[in-house]
Write a protein that binds this DNA or RNA. Structure first.
Length: 222
DNA sequence: TGCCAGGCCGGGT
DNA sequence: ACCCGGCATGGC
């Protein structure tokens, strides 16, 4: 690891400015969005959320009462809609049964304990759990995603084999425990990834991080 | 037009 | 312990 993650943050912020992720939609909408956006473009997720909002379903008690088939149709634009309908139901089971539908109660729990509970829900993995903790619960948990891995590994700052927790630990040990910083940092990495660090066709030429690339360009896995 | 998007699970080695 | 296919829609 040769890069300074604090310096990287300032580079990204100077290049892109604030990303305004999940500003004021409310924690429940953020939680729903975190599930719906799994491997899915946000524009599609936005349509699904608009459908739910129009139907008055963006509250735990309301969404919990919707028949599964109806829920599936409402979130269809987000893709994987049968899968995600079940995942939302699974998440609602935790919110309703353990916390009586109160997100305030839920986010009064300790981050590490709540994280374990979220991970025990079928369909909630590390990134979705951490997105909920950070963006809905305002807890200082860094969110790692495919872009984070791709950007860091192509620059030689981590191994290609580095797993989720290794990468998360790196951020946690290198940065102050600051919710706003974690919020903006993850969003900036996604922005960088979308614009310059795509899976197949990276555009390293115009990338704000071009000066940090290894000699010979971006690294690739064995 | 194929490729890609803010993953996760389950089954097979 | 990895590796891989399945899941689905919409934009460029």
């Amino acid at each position: 690891m040769a890069a300074d993650l604090t310096e990287l943050y300032h580079l990204l912020f100077d290049a892109f400015g604030p990303q305004h992720w999940w500003p004021g939609d409310g924690p429940f909408e953020v939680m729903v969005g975190a599930v719906l956006t799994q491997n899915t473009n946000w524009a599609n997720v936005h349509r699904a959320i608009a459908n739910l909002k129009e139907a008055g379903l963006l509250a735990p008690e309301a969404l919990d009462q919707v028949p599964l088939a109806e829920l599936e149709e409402l979130i269809r634009p987000a893709g994987y809609f049968r899968l995600k309908a079940r995942r939302l139901r699974n998440l609602l089971r935790l919110v309703m049964d353990r916390y009586g539908g109160s997100l305030e109660a839920m986010f009064s729990n300790h981050p590490a304990a709540l994280r374990e509970e979220l991970l025990s829900v079928q369909g909630i993995g590390p990134e979705t759990a951490d997105s909920i903790l950070l963006y809905a619960g305002n807890m200082p948990v860094f969110v790692v995603d495919a872009y984070t891995h791709r950007v860091l590994s192509r620059h030689g700052w981590i191994d290609f084999q580095a797993d989720y927790h290794e990468i998360q630990d790196l951020f946690h040990s290198s940065l102050p425990e600051d919710v706003q910083l974690f919020n903006e940092y993850h969003a900036l990495l996604v922005r960088l990834g979308k614009d310059y660090c795509r899976k197949r066709s990276p555009r390293c030429g115009d990338c704000p991080l071009a000066g940090l690339l290894p000699e010979g360009g971006p690294l690739e896995p064995d």
